[in-house]
Design a protein around this nucleic acid. Structure first.
Length: 771
DNA sequence: ATAGGGTTAG
């Protein structure tokens, strides 16, 4: 049809363009635009058409054309302003959108209820709550408060700025709420970590009969995932299936995310396989899920699959790969990841850069970590915390403290994680007072210790030999209203074990029983360990039996308990049982078993065990293993065999082994060998009173009292007097004969006989009477 | 107008 035949006026072109806007028909619209230009200004051009063209290009996201036409508009009305502000918003040019708002008002045009939602979205994206609040005031003044679009946008804006109370006030004040208003409220709660609130609103929404959308379910699933709420999330999935909601990649991804966060990897994999059009987020979700569950192999396979499908890696993929490298201390993988980032310009992303720092730190390349850290220009609190944690982990408390101050000088104020790392650094370095001081300081500066702070302190005290204080701190934590996690309970139980406090250990056992934590393998393991170390192997066995799927550490704890308390037979029986179950013993298993045999004097069993450990289980014997066997041989009177083993073993004998030999010298009255060994052992450990005990025992047994008194003088010179766990006897004025604690009974009798033959007076110290 | 993914401390 020719234009000469039929005059098409501006109204028709306007209608046609409106149709194109509606259909987002960019090409048709461009043809109409061309026709308008061809027809000339007179017939086809007016303000109405020009505005329509701006709206058309804006709606079709053609930024440059829309801007150019808008700039040339003679009369800019509220519709064209709305179109360009909306376009800037969609494109993420939030500042431009707000500048547009100011400019339109300067020109005397006031925003309507179509402009306001876009403006609020820009405020939310820029977290400009002040501007948003001003716009809120404006909407009240001009009476937009009945508009659901405006209301929903206000909720969203306040939510994005973190002002949940204001968001809720707007929500409660709306007299008409559509599904978007409900969704905005739920999303706001989820984005601010108030997952319980989000779930509450979701249920309210359902009971009010509002029809759910995918957005409602996605945010509900997100809240469920964050709370580890298995049943809630499954319900959400079921609602989606019943409602026949289409599973596009976004919705599918949120289901995948939920299953992976609650640890149902197979279900996550299933969701992944169902999603037809997988995008980068879908891939990344499964990969990060594998990494978080320690399935690094699967994660890397997934990366290869991704590559073979021509899906490129982005920042998130790399962050996961780098985390995998960090977790497994795989420097080679980490370097590959680092190189990929450099080649693809991903290291400018602060999360990726931080992951690189963490990877080098966890691979014990602290200098490389520091180097990468220094090159990061946009460091955030997480970046600082990663470096701080790295120094703390190595016990470099001074460096950690320097970083802690430096971050503050650069305007980053430490959060609870930063404080925790500083405290950890001190504890790792044995600086208990400094750690406790930091713990007080953080509180005086208004940073509240969390469960990890408390646990760090408890573990640190226990590991530095302050088990009783650790138990007290655990009680303080409960008084402070902090609910202990599985790790803190474990540390506390271990502390009881170290100070052999059966009373407190029982109390913790009661606590975990009341809280249904008994069946958690790590907790059951430390309970078995605690009861074992405290001598209550019966109770240890009861806990041991309760655990359904037993793993090696649990067996090791039980075996160690038996071994420590002379029940070598039980220990060996458990060892047989463990092998029947198809579990491979490790070097700890053998250490405990050999110790048990040594303790019970089971020479044949011990030697057999030692041989099968090497030949059948291919465990490279440690010094400790040799120590047990040497001690066993010595105690069974086979000093020659023991000496042969010491000469043969690939280690320089430690003080413990020489001590065993010294003890054998005593039985064999081998004065010469004892002389030789004494020199060695005092060279190795001149400050350990136990060695003087062994030496003086050897001389005393041979009746060399001169040598005994020489040893005594040597001890005096060193300022060594008492030795914990060692009994002592006072003869006459001041002659001390030292006895090793573990065999004190037979030795006491031995010494008693010697002293009686010498006609000497003897008095027992209170300590020996108790033992 | 509302929606899914990555980094730090025990």
């Amino acid at each position: 049809m020719e234009s000469e035949d039929l005059q098409i006026g501006p109204e028709i072109y306007g209608e046609l363009l409106q149709g194109c806007v509606y259909e987002r028909a960019i090409h048709t619209g461009q043809q109409i635009h061309a026709r308008i230009l061809k027809n000339g200004d007179f017939f086809a051009r007016n303000e109405y058409i020009d505005t329509k063209l701006v709206i058309f290009y804006a709606k079709c996201d053609v930024l440059d054309v829309a801007n150019r036409l808008f700039f040339r508009l003679k009369v800019k009305n509220v519709f064209s302003w709305a179109a360009v502000i909306g376009l800037n918003c969609r494109m993420g040019f939030n500042e431009e959108a707000l500048i547009g708002l100011v400019e339109m008002q300067e020109m005397g045009i006031f925003p309507d209820n179509f402009v306001v939602p876009n403006v609020l979205k820009a405020c939310g994206a820029l977290a400009l709550v002040g501007v948003g609040r001003a716009v809120h005031g404006y909407t009240l003044k001009v009476g937009f408060d009945g508009c659901v679009f405006v209301g929903s946008s206000l909720i969203d804006m306040y939510g994005k700025c973190g002002y949940l109370d204001d968001a809720r006030k707007v929500f409660d004040g709306m007299n008409e709420r559509n599904v978007v208003a409900w969704n905005s409220m739920i999303v706001s709660y989820v984005q601010n970590g108030l997952n319980e609130e989000a779930i509450k609103v979701f249920h309210e929404m359902r009971s009010e009969g509002i029809e759910l959308t995918r957005v409602s379910l996605m945010s509900f699933l997100s809240a469920s995932a964050n709370l580890d709420a298995l049943e809630e999330g499954k319900q959400g999935h079921a609602i989606a299936i019943i409602g026949g909601l289409e599973l596009d990649n976004m919705f599918g991804s949120s289901i995948l995310n939920f299953y992976s966060k609650v640890g149902l990897i197979e279900d996550a994999e299933l969701a992944f396989s169902i999603i037809v059009e997988k995008d980068i987020v879908t891939w990344n979700l499964l990969i990060s899920s594998y990494v978080q569950h320690g399935l690094v192999e699967k994660a890397l396979n997934m990366c290869h699959l991704m590559k073979s499908k021509n899906q490129r890696f982005d920042c998130v993929t790399l962050a996961s790969i780098l985390a995998a490298a960090a977790d497994t201390s795989n420097l080679k993988l980490g370097k590959e990841g680092h190189c990929y980032c450099i080649r693809n310009n991903l290291e400018s992303d602060v999360v990726v850069a931080s992951s690189i720092v963490d990877m080098y730190a966890k691979c014990e390349r602290i200098d490389d970590a520091k180097g990468v850290f220094n090159s990061i220009t946009n460091r955030d609190i997480v970046t600082w915390n990663i470096l701080l944690a790295a120094y703390a982990d190595f016990g470099l408390s001074g460096e950690a403290l320097r970083i802690f101050y430096q971050m503050q000088l650069e305007g980053v104020s430490p959060n609870v994680i930063s404080w925790n790392s500083v405290i950890l650094g001190f504890l790792r370095n044995g600086q208990l007072d400094e750690a406790k001081d930091m713990f007080l300081q953080m509180q005086s500066l208004g940073v509240q210790p969390n469960v990890i702070t408390w646990t760090t302190l408890i573990a640190g005290l226990a590991q530095n030999g302050h088990g009783n204080e650790a138990i007290l701190v655990f009680q303080n934590m409960q008084e402070a209203g902090i609910k202990p996690g599985a790790t803190s309970i474990n540390c506390a139980i271990s502390a009881c074990k170290d100070v052999t406090s059966l009373r407190n250990g029982r109390a913790f056992h009661g606590y975990v029983t009341r809280h249904d934590l008994c069946l958690l393998t790590p907790i059951a393991t430390s309970l078995v360990d605690m009861y074992g170390k405290c001598g209550n192997t019966h109770q240890a066995k009861r806990v041991f039996d309760m655990v359904l799927s037993k793993e090696l550490p649990l067996y090791n704890a039980m075996i160690s308990g038996y071994a420590l308390h002379g029940q070598a037979g039980e220990a060996l029986a458990l060892y047989k049982h463990l092998q029947k179950e198809g579990i491979d013993p490790d070097n700890i298993t053998f250490t405990n078993l050999l110790y048990g045999c040594n303790h019970a004097g089971l020479i044949n069993e011990g030697l057999e065990l030692f041989c099968s450990m090497i030949s059948k289980h291919h465990v490279n014997p440690s010094m400790e293993h040799y120590g047990c066997v040497v001690s066993l041989l010595c105690r069974c009177g086979n000093l020659d065999e023991a000496l042969r083993l010491v000469v043969k073993m690939p280690y320089d004998p430690d003080a413990h082994i020489i001590g065993s030999l010294l003890a054998a010298c005593r039985a064999h009255h081998e004065i010469e060998l004892a002389d030789y060994l004494s020199k060695h052992i005092l060279q190795l450990e001149p400050e350990n009173p136990g060695n003087y005990v062994a030496i003086s025992n050897a001389y005393a047994a041979a009746g060399s009292w001169n040598e005994v008194s020489k040893v005594r003088d040597l001890m005096k010179e060193k300022g060594l007097r008492k030795y914990p766990g060692c009994s002592w006897i006072q003869i006459g004025e001041e002659v001390h004969v030292f006895l090793a604690g573990d065999r004190s009974h037979s030795n006491t009798k031995e010494i008693y006989a010697i002293l009686a033959s010498l006609g000497m007076e003897m008095r027992f110290n209170a300590e020996i009477l108790r033992s």
